[in-house]
Every structure is written in C-alpha cells, then in structure tokens.
C-alpha cells in the first residue's frame, strides 16, 4: 500500500525554481563581464593547467564583445537573486525548516559515510531525516556561498562607496577573484546536484515540483 507524504513546502519549491534560471542568467551575464578581462588561470609561474577560459569556450557560447550587455543584465537580475535568497533564508528561519538544513557536530562524520555509501564503498548509509548529512552541508554551504557572492559582488560593484566591505573582502582585485571562484563553486555544485537528482530518481524529483513523496505504508521509501 502506498502513501502520500508531504516533503517540500510550496515556498521552498518556489525559491528553488526561481533561483535556478536566475542563477543561470547571473552566470551567463557574469561570463560576458569576465570576458573583458579574462586573466584567471590554474597553474603556477609560466605553467597553465587550465585557462579561464579557452577561446573556444567563449565562441561556443557566443560570449565575445558583450561587456555592456553583461553588466546591464547582471545589475538588474542581481536584485532577484538577492531578494529570492534573502526571502529563502528568512523563510527557513521563521518556519523552523532551518533545523532540517543546518549541519550539527555529527554531520561532517556522517557526510563522509554518505559519500562512501554513494560511491558504493559502504553498504549502509547513516539514518537520516529529510536531508542526509551531506545534503545538509551542501545546502547550507550554498547559502553561505550565495551570501559571499552578494558581499564580494557589492564590494566590486561599489568599491568606493562600500570601501569597508571592499577591504573586508581582501581588496578590489581579490574580491573579484572570490566572486569568480564562487561561481565556479556553483557550477560544480550544479553538476553534482544534477547527478544526484538523476540517481535519486523520479519520486525524489517529483517532490520538488509537487511537494509530496510516495512512500510504502511501513514508511520505507519506494525509491529515494
């Protein structure tokens, strides 16, 4: 016998699905801006492992010579990104949902066991509630990263007016590096997130649209 169990509130689903396209617009417009001074690379001295970004990358995504367009979109959609994130945080605080999201002192050890389980190096995963320890760490980190993007973004957007923030973020040039690195972080998060969603299956994905999950009556998940 199957049973319908509420999983994600309507508010959470809205925040999630608004954030997704907005983050894409922010990343795309950010790339248009970065193109105009694309000096970052991974490597040392004269050795470059990875240049951000190869010309073929810009060509493939049509990112060349669009600095003005990038800045316009970035400084308009930043408001939606910021407000959506702010409302999400306020919501989790006032609804009490933060308790399911914020890691505790056991989370880091448990998260390691989750990773081993996901990589099929361990048979059992630690018991969990709505989110496992690895999810808690990931979903909390991403919010801290979001805050980081807002602060480093503001520091490089208005470095004279918010000079104290710019100093706090390590100065203009360093804040720009942080702002860039955070976006690389989102991109990695996105890749892992998509893989996990595919592995978790339909029941899990559906819950982020419908809000409910289908479970067997004895509370064991059919697929998770």
């Amino acid at each position: 016998m199957k049973k319908i169990v509420k999983k994600h509130s309507l508010a959470m689903r809205w925040f999630h699905w608004i954030n997704f396209p907005i983050l894409i617009v922010m990343t795309w417009s950010g790339l248009l801006i970065y193109w105009a001074n694309d000096v970052y690379k991974l490597g040392w001295g004269n050795t470059t492992i990875l240049k951000f970004f190869p010309q073929s990358f810009y060509d493939a995504l049509h990112l060349n010579y669009k600095l003005a367009e990038g800045m316009s979109f970035h400084f308009v959609f930043m408001w939606i990104f910021f407000l959506n994130g702010l409302l999400y945080v306020l919501y989790t605080i006032f609804s009490g949902e933060w308790r399911e999201l914020v890691p505790n002192k056991h989370s880091f050890k448990e998260a390691w066991l989750v990773v081993l389980h996901d990589l099929h190096l361990r048979k059992t995963a630690p018991p969990q509630k709505k989110y496992n320890a690895a999810q808690k760490i990931a979903y909390t980190s991403i919010i801290v990263m979001g805050l980081g993007s807002v602060l480093t973004g503001l520091a490089i957007y208005k470095p004279v007016q918010f000079w104290w923030l710019c100093e706090l973020m390590g100065g203009y040039a360093f804040a720009r590096i942080l702002h860039f690195a955070l976006t690389i972080g989102y991109s990695l998060f996105f890749v892992i997130h998509i893989v996990q969603v595919i592995l978790a299956g339909w029941n899990n994905f559906r819950s982020v649209v419908t809000g409910f999950e289908v479970v067997k009556d004895d509370n064991e998940k059919i697929s998770a």
Binding site: A36, N37, A173, R176
Partner: peptide
C-alpha cells in the same frame, strides 16, 4: 587604484 570597466585595475 584606477579601475577600468573591463575589470582590470
């Protein structure tokens, strides 16, 4: 610190 809109300073 002179800041160009291109992103260098």
């Amino acid at each position: 610190n002179f800041k160009c809109i291109e992103g260098w300073n």
